[in-house]
Design a binder for these strands. Sequence first.
DNA 1: GCAAGGTC
Length: 840
Amino acid sequence: MSRGPELIITEKDNAARRIADILSGETASAERMNGVNVYKWGGKRCIGLSGHVVGVDFPPEYNDWRDVEPVELIGAPVEKHPTQENIVAALRRLARRAGTVTIATDYDREGELIGKEAYELVRDVNEDVPVDRVRFSSITKREVTEAFENPDDLDFNLAAAGEARQIIDLVWGAALTRFLSLSARQLGNDFISVGRVQGPTLKLIVDREREIEAFDPEDYWELFSKLTKDANGDAESFEAQYFYLDDDGTEAERVWNEADAEEAYQTLLGVEAAEVASVNRRTRTDTPPAPFNTTQFIRAAGSIGYSAQRAMSIAEDLYTAGYITYPRTDNTVYPDDLDPRELLGAFEGDRRFKEDAESLLEQEEIEPTEGDNETTDHPPIHPTGELPSASDLTEDEWDVYELVVRRFFATVAEDAVWEHLRVVAEVEGLSLKANGKRLLEAGYHDVYPYFNSSESFVPDVEEGESLVLSDTHLDAKQTQPPRRYGQSRLIETMEQMGIGTKATRHDVIQKLYDRGYIESDPPRPTRLARAVVEASEDFAKLIVSEEMTSQLESDMLAIARGEATLEDVTEESKEMLQDVFEGLMESREELGKQLQDSLKADKTVGTCPECGGDLVVRKSRRGSYFIGCDSYPDCTYTLPLPSTGKPLIMEDSCEDHDLHHIKMLAGRKTFVHGCPLCKAEEADEEDDLVIGTCPECGEEHDGELAIKRLRSGSRLVGCTRYPDCDYSLPLPRRGDIEVTDESCEEHDLPELRITYEGDREPWELGCPICNYREYQAQQNGEGGSDLESISGIGAKTAEKLKDAGIEDVKTLKASEPDDIAAKVEGVGADTVRKWQTAAD
DNA sequence: GCAAGGTC
């Protein structure tokens, strides 16, 4: 009997392709099966999954939220079903005729579970085929070859640990989410969610907000003087700060008592010189940073202005294009077979990195830095050595790519060395100190400019030397509340707390935005978020506590070790949830009311000037936002809002009308609208300024074009016969509009100039018709494809789609998913369907 | 339609 082909299953297409290349000596060819790549060479086939291709859920009879009491979900069965039909079908087809199967999913717990899911799909169609498992932590020739020479077995206990997590997350998450949503009567798109990871993350944000609110600022004073060394006519000055030793004998700069501060201030004002009491010099070694894992990468990208979500999406594109390694990793230690010299060598041929690469290669010894996390999942994020040419990347992609390259450079660069100089001067029993620092050896800072390496100057002085004292000033200050978490700080804290994973932490933050729990950046919790956290603290403490995860982790460890079973762990967890529900059911109504009140508070802008009710942000039937009275239909008072963006109610209010200011969130086009009533009044007070004849109805009806200000705050050039004629041309939101003496011959309209406050140069907008035409041409010309407006389509994918003749969203929507999948590498029909839905 | 975890 002849054996069928060997089937290799990986976690993702990219890994399948690279492993096929390595094992085949680059002779593997790719073919498409159900829109999925299958790599083929000799008697072997290799297919990449897309992470989990099956998911857990309750049976369909539990689908209706209203029909099923949330508490019933605790006892409900949990089923597995395919979520990526095309991949599952392809896998089954291949498995049916396979002679052996090798599971080569990622080397971590979730990878073991994904491997077991693949194993079960294989077993469904082929009872006898031998299945083994290979493990490697980076896809290099050496590791992969070695792993395939020494195959192992699947670790079913480890996979069961992952399954226990799936079940517990589903049951707790779904039961509590439904309970909160039902009790507040929030069904449909605006349901109220909680979960093991989003819960504690939200509590972190809410707790910080509570600290900020409870903060009681304290007054203190700080004193500074200028000290000048005046030797041989060369005056060198520096600022020194007053300090004293507090009761514990520790050095303090803040003076907590105004009288003491004033006394010291007067003393310093009365003197003209101070004597140097001590000079301390020391050198400090500043070691280069460790290689990037996901969290540290997000943090660094954050410091150059990229949100966590955006940084990961760009990294994903760079990875798919082959320029950087896999961006989701916990590892901060390079694998043994990364040869830094070889990788540096790849940058010698590139104009932009040549100089730095060469100087690094001149080092006699190259020993990369190591971080604290050494894991088996993937190598730290580093450039692959395949370089993009300038036109391959957008500006943002280049920024992020350069960051990854330079981080790699830094990890193989030399230490930096600083010299710290501390000078203490004394006068009349008062002490002043200054700390200078100088970069003696720039080391890694030369190749990694993202850290602050600025120096502060303090001249060489000697003990006993007299310095001129001048410019003494006393600064009154106040202690500040703790700062809100920024996105990267939040992700770092989640990592420390052990919640979420490298691949999900940034998504969790996005989810909190989507659910209406946080707004703005740095994120600020809404009233709803507080109510959800409070309700959870009162009745389901575990769901907002990091302990739920640490408990789960130790349970999973026990399962993996064979010391506990999946059933033991899930049953115990369900019993705890059952107890939680006893408390919840009793307080159902009260809880629902609190959630509803908070939801309303989140929408409230202020008090209605006509009836004293609440003014709230509403959405019209056409989908646009406006402000209306909560007492509608008894009160019909409304205020318009700008048509672009989603309104955010800001914290500050208008002094005249006591209405909260509004910000319109629209990505890069975000702007502050301000007080909606002020905007409306400004428009009412401003007369339309006629500048010419309406090109559409001028001849027939004597329509005229005028510069108008709308109550929504927008400005435009529009026909005076509106609404009978709706001809209009856009005008910028900001700046003063000046009508110049010049006029456009073609359209017989005056040219406009926009002027700004401050130093900003005026903008010669010109004829409004010409200007609008140029704008439209620009929109349709370069970057005319709007494919990238769909979430999930990056620059690279858009490029690939265009190569396949799919130029824009319209074509994408009109095409058959399977056709696109067949034409475009790495794109499945399911993905296309998702894009098509996203485009609607 | 719920979670969290993969991946796109």
